[in-house]
Computed example of a mutant assay.
Amino acid sequence: MAFEDAVEFMRGASAVRNGLRVVPFAACREAARRGGISAREAEIAALRAGLCPSRYERSVGTVGLEGQARLLESCAAVAGCGGLGGWIIEILVRAGVGKLILADGDTFGENNLNRQLYAAEENLGEPKAEAAARRVKAVNSAVEVKALNFFLNEENCEAALDGADVVLDALDGNGARSVVFRACAKLGVPFVHGAIGGLYGETAVLRAGDVPPWELFGAGDKGEEVERGNPSFTPPFIASAQAAEAVSILTRGEETQRKTLFWFDISRLTVRRLNLK
């Protein structure tokens, strides 16, 4: 069965709901099997033909069929699979970003249980990247995922991130952020920065030529989190903002606002915009 036949199979199995011609999950997978193509390719083919795979029925009202196809054709890398990273990955895989690179050399510890989405009593000691990759395949088997069980450094960073269309920062130190940001600048890839500490968090999209906020403001390697830790609700709050930026970049090629740091006080639900020019 060729691509065209796979599309016709899905079209025949589809039904119109709320103005959308929706293809059931099982029909998408059967079309992939019959056509000898990947599940991701089958879903892209459906979207390009004006059909909506049922799993994205509640997304296309926001991103559109074209935007959803672009997400499936895109690759996002997440540097760090712990507090911020786990929530970022969960959002991106459910959004349908077609390829994910997940990098983290750490394993789950007991103090991760309060906030890290993929940390559980049963997997203490397990590599974070492997747990995240397993979750990705359980939630959306069409997504192609690569787990890197090592920390990104000057020697391996560029090769590890090669092929990514966007890189999301879920790191826990500014030294590591500098390494990854420099690699992104060389690769010409946008770097979606995020950091949390206590009841505060920040996000910014950085590109080649930008001065990172931790350098601009003279921050050390660690911050507020050393004394105040991170409660369970801070990581998903900031991760959502980062994932939204990434989806905007992948679907429309633009971020919320250039050269701006968004600083959130979650205790008061306020945000400040700081100029990074």
Rank of each mutant, 00 (worst) to 15 (best):
A133D: 08
V192Y: 01
A76K: 07
L199D: 11
R33Y: 07
F217Y: 13
C52N: 08
D210A: 05
A183W: 11
A31P: 11
A26R: 14
T251R: 04
G218L: 08
N123Q: 11
D104Y: 06
G105Y: 08
S74F: 12
A164I: 07
T260Q: 01
A79S: 06
A170G: 15
A49D: 07
M10A: 09
A195H: 02
A42W: 02
F233R: 10
V60R: 12
I37T: 05
D172Y: 05
E122L: 01
W87A: 00
N18P: 00
D104R: 04
G36H: 14
P235Q: 08
A219H: 14
V145Y: 03
Q116V: 03
I44N: 02
C52T: 15
E57I: 12
A133Q: 08
D210N: 07
E110Y: 09
V7L: 05
A95Y: 14
L92P: 12
I88R: 10
W87F: 11
A138E: 15
R55K: 15
T62M: 13
R48Y: 06
F9G: 04
A244M: 07
I196Y: 06
V139H: 14
G201F: 02
E43F: 01
N149F: 04
R55W: 13
A147V: 05
V145G: 11
K99A: 11
G86N: 10
E215A: 13
E154Q: 12
E225R: 13
N149Y: 03
G35T: 05
Q257Y: 03
V211K: 08
V16G: 01
A13H: 06
G201W: 04
P53I: 01
S14C: 06
D210W: 00
F191V: 01
A77L: 10
A159S: 11
S248A: 14
A138I: 02
G218S: 05
S59N: 15
N111V: 00
N111Q: 13
R134Y: 09
A103F: 10
G12T: 00
A239V: 08
L199A: 14
L100G: 07
